[in-house]
Write a protein that binds this DNA or RNA. Structure first.
Lengths: 198, 198
DNA sequence: CCTACCGATCGGTAGG
DNA sequence: CCTACCGATCGGTAGG
């Protein structure tokens, strides 16, 4: 459906934008990597900005889709299982989509100035979905006595903070060290939620 | 001690590097902001790279100093207090040194390619100190029965992950929303550590 | 601290 | 998809 050479440009752009950022990637690098001359990129995209949005829109679509499938597919599972699932969804994303995860990291923290607002909107949409999944699940688990009676927003804030922390840490620890951290985080997160006698 | 105009360049460079990154900052911008011509920067620094390391070295020195004072000053306090202190040390840093914190964020995740190794070393030094403080304190608190008998490395991993998560979140939430998250994180972190009967 | 300049590279266009 | 080109800007230097 998408012409071969256009798709090649998009793949090369994902690679380069994730490693060098938008401003740090030149159209001639992009052309080299795509096996054509710089000017030829303009037969597929209006300008550099259009390449950017094509890459970003595609990446966001794929991830929001994954999250909403998780939402429907795991409706029957326990809180602890579902909690681990949402952590794993993110951890697997960091591990298996190295380039896309790194692009996400860049766009969250250091968006190109001119694109900041439009990117912020896209990120908020994603976070809303994540929040909804967790809130619904948390309230259900509290009622069932499966976890302690914590304020749902407090619990959600903590889970998302752990996910964000792992997100950062993945890019500067070795894979072995990172896996230890994921285990530690799951264990301690569950300790924070489990019901206790006081 | 440091000549006025040299210090002005360093301040401007911190401002610009934190907002636009190293490669994204041009020497002419830096000159404009410092109230001089581009060529004049070369009377104070050998080249752009030398400006970079002057900014970075200064920022790291200040932060490692703060951490080691905390280590000695709070020796008498309880685990929960000291845990909150180390979270606050970082949160206050994000809030009160906006530019420096943002520079730190950039250098952790997206270091300029050529400087990556030297930066990694500096960051590891800092993390070692943080680790040492927490490990010593955690083992003491476990022995005293003040917290549950968790593996120290597991506990440390969780605290650092929360701090890293807040680090990311500070740059994309409003201050009000962020403060709520800090409170939530402190509360849930303590729940994960407190001793329980099972 | 300045003016005046260097070669290299940037994003983008003309015209085919 | 190409060759050939544009004005603007980059980091850095000469010489004062």
């Amino acid at each position: 459906m998408i012409p071969l050479s256009k798709d090649t440009i998009l793949q090369s752009a994902l690679y380069l934008f994730s490693r060098k950022g938008y401003e740090g990637t030149s159209l001639s690098e992009l052309a080299d990597r795509s096996g054509m001359r710089k000017a030829s990129i303009y037969s597929h995209f209006k300008n550099k900005e259009a390449v950017f949005w094509a890459v970003i829109d595609r990446a966001f679509e794929e991830e929001t889709e994954k999250l909403s499938s998780l939402l429907t597919e795991t409706a029957e599972e326990s809180f602890q299982e579902r909690l681990n699932r949402i952590i794993d969804l993110h951890v697997d994303f960091y591990k298996q989509n190295d380039e896309k995860a790194n692009l996400w990291r860049r766009m969250t923290l250091f968006p190109p100035e001119a694109f900041q607002d439009r990117l912020q909107n896209k990120l908020m949409e994603y976070e809303q979905q994540c929040n909804a999944l967790l809130e619904q699940e948390m309230n259900r688990a509290i009622k069932a006595g499966e976890i302690a009676a914590i304020d749902a927003n407090t619990g959600i804030a903590m889970v998302l903070c752990m996910v964000d922390g792992l997100f950062m840490e993945y890019s500067y620890y070795t894979e072995e060290e990172f896996d230890k951290r994921v285990q530690a985080v799951k264990q301690m997160t569950w300790r924070a939620f489990m019901p206790v006698q006081r």
